[in-house]
C-alpha cells in the first residue's frame, strides 16, 4: 500500500494537542454524538465544550450498530437516529463547531462513511472545516481507500490501539495515524468507570515506543481527578460517556443540561493541567 509520509501533511488535531502542551497541559478531547438530544442542542453543547476548554471536539455520527459503545452512548445515538439525524446533519455540525476554531474530528463506524463514499465524505468533511476522522471499527489493514482520501484532503486519521495490541500492530497503527493515536485504556466498551485501567500508562509508553508522535487516552474517564492522572503520561485525555450523560437530564431541561456539561468540562479542563 503506497503511503506518503503521514507527517508531511499538517495535522489540525496534532496542532491543538501541541498548543495544549505548550501551555503545560494535556489536550482535552470531548465527545458528543450529533443529534442528541436534537441536532441544534448537540451543536450548542459542542460549542459550549469548546468555550470551557475542550481542545479537540469529537462529533459522533450516530450509527444503528455501535459495537464499541456502552449503554450511555448506545441510548443517545439510538435517540438521535429515532429523531431523524442523518449524515448531512453531522457535516453541518462540523461546520458550526469548527467555526469556533477548535479542531473537530468525526467519530464514525465505517459503514456510514462507506455508504456516503469515502472520497466524497473526505471532500465534504474537509470543506466543512473538519480535521479528520476517528474510526473505531476500521483498522489500518482495511483502510486503503481512507488512507488515500485523507492524504488527498489533508485530514487526520485516528485509529485505535488496545491493551491487546501486539508490538507489531502498535507499530503499524502508529505509522498509519495522523494527529494522534487513540489508546483504549481498557479492554471493553465506552462508559464512565470508577478507575481507568492500569494498563493505560503501559499502553501509552508502548505506543510511543512503536513510533507514535502523540497518544491520547480514552474509555472510562469521567472526572477531573482521573483526567489529571492521565495527563501525567498522555498527550491528551478523551472523555465521552460522562459528557453525554450530562445531556440526559430526566427533566429534559436543555439549558440546565448544558450548564451541567459546562461544569464537567471545566472540572476536566482543570484536571488536564500538568
Amino acid at each position: 500500500m503506497s503511503q506518503p509520509d503521514a507527517a508531511a501533511v499538517p495535522s489540525r488535531s496534532g496542532a491543538a494537542i501541541d498548543a495544549a502542551a505548550a501551555r503545560g497541559a494535556a489536550a482535552l478531547v470531548g465527545y458528543l454524538p450529533v443529534g442528541f438530544p436534537d441536532v441544534d442542542t448537540s451543536i450548542a453543547a459542542a460549542r459550549a465544550m469548546v468555550a470551557e476548554g475542550v481542545d479537540v471536539v469529537e462529533l459522533g455520527l450516530p450509527y444503528s450498530d455501535p459495537g464499541m459503545d456502552g449503554e450511555v452512548i448506545q441510548d443517545a445515538v439510538q435517540q438521535a437516529l429515532d429523531a431523524g439525524t442523518r449524515t448531512r446533519h453531522v457535516l453541518r455540525a462540523v461546520e458550526e463547531v469548527a467555526a469556533t476554531g477548535a479542531a473537530v474530528l468525526v467519530m464514525s463506524y465505517w459503514n456510514p462513511i462507506l455508504r456516503y463514499g469515502v472520497e466524497r465524505f473526505s471532500r465534504d468533511l474537509a470543506a466543512a472545516g473538519g480535521a479528520g476522522l476517528i474510526t473505531p471499527d476500521l483498522i489500518p489493514d482495511e483502510a486503503g481507500e481512507w488512507l488515500a482520501a485523507s492524504d488527498a484532503h489533508g485530514l487526520d486519521r485516528v485509529f485505535l490501539v488496545a491493551p491487546s495490541s501486539t508490538p507489531e500492530r502498535l507499530k503499524r497503527t502508529a505509522a498509519a495515524c495522523r494527529g494522534f493515536v487513540y489508546a483504549a485504556s481498557t479492554m471493553g466498551v465506552t462508559g464512565a468507570r470508577a478507575a481507568v485501567g492500569a494498563r493505560a500508562e503501559e499502553l501509552v509508553a508502548a505506543t510511543r515506543a512503536a513510533g507514535a508522535e502523540r497518544v491520547c487516552v480514552g474509555l472510562g474517564v469521567s472526572n477531573g481527578a482521573q483526567a489529571h492522572e492521565i495527563a501525567r503520561y498522555a498527550d491528551g485525555v478523551i472523555v465521552g460517556s460522562a459528557l453525554v450523560r450530562t445531556l440526559k437530564r430526566a427533566d429534559g431541561d436543555g439549558r440546565a443540561a448544558i450548564g451541567d456539561l459546562r461544569a464537567l468540562v471545566a472540572d476536566l479542563a482543570s484536571g488536564v493541567q500538568r
Binding site: 465505517w110 473505531p136 483498522i139 490501539v161 488496545a162 491493551p163 491487546s164 501486539t166 500492530r169 483504549a184
Partner: peptide
C-alpha cells in the same frame, strides 16, 4: 469479507 472490527479484537 475482511475484518472491520475494533483493534481490541484483532489479537483474539
Amino acid at each position: 469479507g475482511g475484518r472491520f472490527v475494533p483493534e481490541a479484537l484483532v489479537a483474539a
